[in-house]
Design a protein around this nucleic acid. Structure first.
Lengths: 206, 206
DNA sequence: GTCTATACAGTGATAGAC
DNA sequence: GTCTATCACTGTATAGAC
């Protein structure tokens, strides 16, 4: 039941898995605790379902953003970073927080089942960092760059809260610039130059 | 009682605060649960004591590393990053993990009491990023750089485990290079050039 | 599919003996 | 200072009625 998963994501995100009782979650959708165990065999199964939905919806969100992004690599990089910020700060934020904060509360078998999904997420970022390196924008080690970038993005809710797309895009610019060790303005200029004059492999604005 | 704090840091780090019972912790130092409440009024007080010790010892470790570091800014930057990796991966790792993972389980008043301590930690990194910018190595926004760097360092235990100082220093080089968007070799060269020919504001090797 | 009722284990914390 | 014993409570999960 999807309402149950939604409520669980919200409560677990805010209170933590261990402090959120099955009664709390069931009550949030006007059920009693007994009824929850009809839909999920155990509380752990519910946690797995929450995280699975978080990853799947997050992937869809990211892929959609990439499909709409203009062609140049810098533009696509910015789109990806902005999309990830959207996941972390937007409607999926509770799912994402549960994913990152409660991942190691999962049973080992559950982690194995979810691993392929989360690898896809990492690969999206990897591919773009490779393009940046190939085009001479990124000079540092790609793995290390990803290891700095991803936790940094995931941690943004601890020091800022950005619900609207505009401010998310602004933050994304600052972060992209930082990855390339550039002033924000320099990155913006580079990115926009790319859009107007660049090759534009696929300008998919329908 | 310090043994109690040590045992608590280890168990809470491995199992999480909520899953670690007072009985578990007391048993680890051959006490019964009742005795723990002689030393700490509540379980929450014990958590605060663990995190306080983690921050204080971490600060001491960082300051000591900086005192021993050679003079140049790049060298001091590397020393700071290596020291933080040392905190996160070395003997203080359990304390540090509790600090970062259970911080928001603290009562609001406890967070207020500890805030000044954790600010000191952040300021160490801030000061060095400012120096890097002043000397023309760092071009990006300093706040943003710190917001990428710190979570990235704190998250390293999720993808690598480095107990010895040598491999910690190697990782530190990769990360410093990434912050400056340089290949590792380029950063190493820059750093060593600075040591042998640089101004060396204070070469404090006693 | 949801309810009520309940089994059963474990929790933080306290009281009082030693 | 540490122990034992215990209180009051909450947790997950199950059984069976509807």
């Amino acid at each position: 039941m999807d309402e149950l998963i939604d409520a669980a994501s919200r409560l677990i995100s805010l209170q933590g898995y261990d402090r959120t009782s099955v009664r709390d979650i069931a009550q949030a959708v006007n059920l009693t605790s007994g009824s929850m165990f009809y839909h999920f065999k155990t509380k752990d199964d519910l946690l797995e379902a929450v995280i699975r939905k978080g990853i799947i919806d997050g992937l869809a969100f990211m892929n959609q953003a990439l499909d709409l992004a203009p062609g140049g690599t810098l533009n696509r990089f910015h789109a990806l970073v902005a999309a990830h910020i959207g996941v972390v700060q937007g409607e999926l934020r509770h799912f994402h927080r549960v994913w990152t904060r409660e991942w190691d509360r999962l049973q080992p078998e559950a982690r194995l089942r979810l691993r392929p999904l989360s690898e896809q997420y990492r690969e999206l970022m990897n591919a773009l960092l490779h393009s940046l390196a190939a085009e001479g924008h990124l000079h540092s080690d790609i793995e290390t760059a990803r290891h700095l970038l991803l936790p940094g993005l995931n941690w943004t809710p601890t020091w800022t809260s950005l619900k609207d797309k505009a401010s998310q895009a602004t933050l994304a610019e600052k972060i992209c610039a930082t990855v390339l060790n550039l002033p924000v303005d320099a990155f913006s200029d580079l990115m926009h130059a790319e859009t107007t004059t660049g090759p534009g492999h696929r300008r998919t604005i329908d």
